[in-house]
């Protein structure tokens, strides 16, 4: 059984994870260290909405960086649309269309290009943009803004600080450590092939602590090192 990138918590925008019993399971290991334990999605959305609400009250736009495909739609799905206007970057908008056509509910959004600089709605708006937009001239149109980044890597203070944003929200489309272990256990697999991320660590843990036949699975792409390359998400 081969799996791609996965998370185990349902998010309402895509088909939920479903364990399949198998003999051999190929798993990713992006967050394969016990320091990665995600807070509940509901809690993260409460934090994001509180942050947005506080900025809106101060008359400041909220720019939230997140990957345009998947993560952005998941966040849109969890936003409280009563707080203010939801604006999206050009990289996000076409994907929203696909989701909506696929029957996923997303709140109404405005494409950033349709707003003029100084539009009064911006003061209460949340803007979803890919990380690459950060620091670019595209950002100027928002005037005074607070920024944040949504990613599993935000779990660590060091990476949060390195990002140089005001806030980090821990929200990932990969499984955390308990999630990986749960998924592996649910498959009932005796043989586990580990790839992408903390390969040697998860392999050793599964062998020594769970008595499984675990091994590293080489692929032709990506960094198989213990590296937190941090671009992977």
């Amino acid at each position: 059984m081969a799996s791609g990138d996965y998370k185990v918590e349902p998010d309402g925008t895509c088909a939920p994870f479903e364990p399949v019993r198998c003999h051999t399971f190929i798993t990713e290991s992006t967050f394969g260290l016990p320091i990665y334990k995600w807070p509940s999605q509901a809690e993260v959305f409460r934090e994001i909405n509180d942050w947005w609400r506080a900025n809106a009250a101060a008359g400041r736009a909220s720019v939230l960086f997140c990957y345009a495909f998947g993560k952005a739609q998941r966040i849109l799905h969890g936003l409280d649309e009563n707080i203010g206007t939801i604006v999206v970057h050009g990289a996000v908008e076409p994907l929203n269309k696909v989701y909506r056509e696929g029957g996923v509910y997303l709140p109404p959004t405005i494409y950033a290009g349709d707003l003029k600089k100084g539009d009064p709605r911006l003061k209460q708006a949340i803007i979803l943009a890919p990380p690459s937009a950060g620091g670019s001239t595209w950002m100027r149109r928002f005037g005074d803004y607070a920024d944040a980044f949504a990613s599993g890597w935000m779990m660590l203070r060091g990476t949060r600080r390195r990002r140089g944003v005001d806030r980090g929200f821990v929200l990932s489309d990969h499984a955390d450590w308990p999630g990986l272990l749960w998924a592996i256990e649910q498959t009932g697999a005796e043989r586990v092939m580990v790839t992408h991320g903390s390969v040697p660590i998860l392999v050793r843990y599964l062998r020594e602590m769970r008595g499984l036949d675990a091994q590293a699975f080489e692929t032709e792409y990506g960094d198989e090192d213990d590296a937190n390359t941090q671009e992977a998400e």
């Binding site: 260290l33 016990p34 320091i35 660590l156 060091g158 903390s198 660590i201 843990y205 213990d226 937190n228």
Partner: peptide, 9 residues
Amino acid sequence: LFEESYQAV
């Protein structure tokens, strides 16, 4: 595993 975690953090 504690040590690996510390090295990452």
